[in-house]
């Protein structure tokens, strides 16, 4: 039973990891908490739903959904965040409030457009299950695990191995200096938001497919917990987010084992507050000194 709960924790944790990577990606470039990410994810999943239902082929539909979600994310940056960056006197709180505002807009647009009820979503990855000893793995769990790792690897390569990634890292360290050194910061930031939209759509699609249902508030609790996972792993550090996600997932299931289902939701938030108080830079983050 305890072992089974640990396995469950890993499987839930992977889902958190899938989402928390998205928070880290934007934070890694802009030092910004993208609180609208959970809603972008929800919108992405709903795009998948509607486009697949439009029946012009499954893969074309998913690709269109990916691009559309990427564009929503870029729209968010270009129309709302970019002007704030230009403006003097905008601090992290201003940006955060804008993100929270956009989060509410997207979430409620979803409610208006698609309705609040839970709707079925097809399980694309149902190839049966795999039994290892007494533990059963479901094929969708394996797909999620694989996707999370692939996304992690791809993003790591983009950031550390590609030319645009060099630009991303430069922007992170000093936007003005990067600009002076010839990095087109606008392109780099837009690219980052596009990528973040695409990961959001992939995560949304996988999660909807895993649970076989979709609804506008699917991102609310998930977003909060994944954010806690990102903070735990050191927000901005990609592999930290994955490990943070796993830790939150496992601790949640362990908490259910010891204290019952009611305390489950508290785990992530207790972790969040403790990390903020004790090690604000998280497990894998570098501590930063505020510049004077």
């Amino acid at each position: 039973m305890f072992l089974q709960q640990i396995i469950n924790g890993i499987s839930i944790g992977l889902i958190y990891a899938l989402v928390s990577v998205g928070y880290s990606l934007i934070f890694g470039v802009l030092r910004m908490m993208n609180m609208a990410y959970a809603s972008i994810l929800t919108v992405g999943a709903h795009f998948c739903l509607s486009l697949v239902q439009a029946k012009f082929g499954f893969f074309p539909a998913i690709i269109v959904a990916l691009v559309l979600t990427g564009l929503v994310s870029v729209f968010f940056d270009v129309s709302m965040l970019a002007p704030l960056r230009k403006k003097t006197g905008s601090d992290s709180v201003t940006v955060l409030i804008t993100a929270i505002g956009f989060n509410y807009i997207l979430l409620n647009l979803c409610l208006v457009i698609w309705g609040s009820e839970r709707k079925p979503f097809q399980n694309v990855f149902d190839f049966g299950s795999l039994q290892v000893g007494s533990v059963i793995f479901d094929s969708s769990q394996i797909v999620i695990m694989a996707t999370a790792l692939v996304i992690l690897a791809a993003l790591t390569w983009v950031i550390y191995g590609s030319k645009i990634g060099l630009g991303m890292r430069a922007v992170q360290q000093n936007t003005k200096a990067a600009n002076l050194a010839g990095v087109n910061t606008k392109v780099v930031i837009t690219f980052s938001f596009f990528i973040s939209g695409i990961t959001a759509c992939i995560a949304g699609f996988l999660i909807a497919s895993y649970y076989q249902l979709i609804y506008p508030t699917m991102g609310v609790a998930l977003g909060g917990k994944a954010f806690a996972a990102a903070v735990l792993g050191g927000i901005g550090v990609l592999h930290g987010s994955v490990i943070g996600g796993l830790i939150v997932g496992i601790l949640e299931c362990v908490a259910v084992y010891f204290f019952g289902g009611g305390v489950r939701d508290a785990v992530a938030y207790i972790i969040l507050i403790l990390v903020l108080l004790l090690v604000p830079s998280g497990l894998f983050g570098k501590s930063e000194n505020t510049k004077v």
Partner: peptide, 8 residues
Amino acid sequence: GTVDFAPN
């Protein structure tokens, strides 16, 4: 609001 019932 729970969607993952694995622990239950």
